[in-house]
Design a protein around this nucleic acid. Structure first.
Lengths: 131, 131
DNA sequence: CAAGTGTATCACATGTTATGATACACCCAT
DNA sequence: ATGGGTGTATCATAACATGTGATACACTTG
């Protein structure tokens, strides 16, 4: 609902999903789209927690997931940094996309939609978005 | 994991999602694909609960969601029936598909994928599936 | 050493999911 | 009318996920 800023980053947090998931997704998106540079330092746990009006524990949860997935590297005492490996980032992007595609097609298949129909629905939706 | 049968119906329940959600989805899929006829009576709460090795409350939860969405009509003392309205079914199918498409495109957009790339990924995935 | 990092661990609260049990309300065939 | 099969409501209980708030510890840098 509301947009919070911290440094050059912008965050929107709502109640539709766990907060730590939203934090992860927004970092993923920012990195993958090149809005955050490789190797860049991201806000400290405490700093981001304060900016988002959230407990450090919640941010910590997000940061640990990000490290597990290879999106970030954390250095105790120094901070948390976006991975400097372009390959890591591309792999993560591909993997997330592959999962999304697979789940989507599974869902559409359960609803009995064929490839043709799926393409048509996507085109219709994209047409709507571009208004 | 395991497949459970009750009458002519088949159910697979795993631990990836809430049980009641899986029940709803599998009825949705069966109805939308015509594997269950319109107006057909589905198993009683107690019967399905026993077949799935689950509490009646859990099945009840699923059945109430199914009625809320218009998929079924429940008649106290008689049982639960798939809606006899073809229009209802088609509306539900369209609505579920529209939601799936919208969420998918949102996710892909967050990952920075364009329409062209999305189509290509879908085609690749469908090619794999048809092996 | 001090300040700023990440990390770990409590206690606590809330909401969701699920179990298990009991009771009630309703419909239909006998 | 009664009995058996329906859906429905409610309660207690438990496990888990999510989030808050607080405290303490470990590490790095200046």
């Amino acid at each position: 609902m509301e947009e919070r800023r911290v440094g050059s980053l912008r965050f929107r947090i709502d109640f539709s999903q766990p907060i730590y998931e939203q934090i992860v997704q927004q970092f993923q998106s920012s990195v993958v789209k090149g809005e955050i540079e490789r190797g860049a330092k991201i806000p400290s746990v405490r700093e981001l927690a304060q900016a988002l009006h959230v407990t450090p524990n919640t941010v910590m949860h997000a940061y640990q997931e990000m490290e597990r997935s290879g999106l970030t590297e954390t250095r105790r005492g120094q901070g948390t940094f976006i991975t400097s490996s372009q390959e890591q980032i591309e792999q993560l992007r591909s993997k997330l996309a592959a999962v999304a595609v697979r789940e989507f097609l599974q869902k559409m298949n359960d609803l009995g939609y064929s490839g043709q129909e799926i393409f048509r629905l996507i085109q219709d939706e994209e047409r709507d978005e571009s208004l």
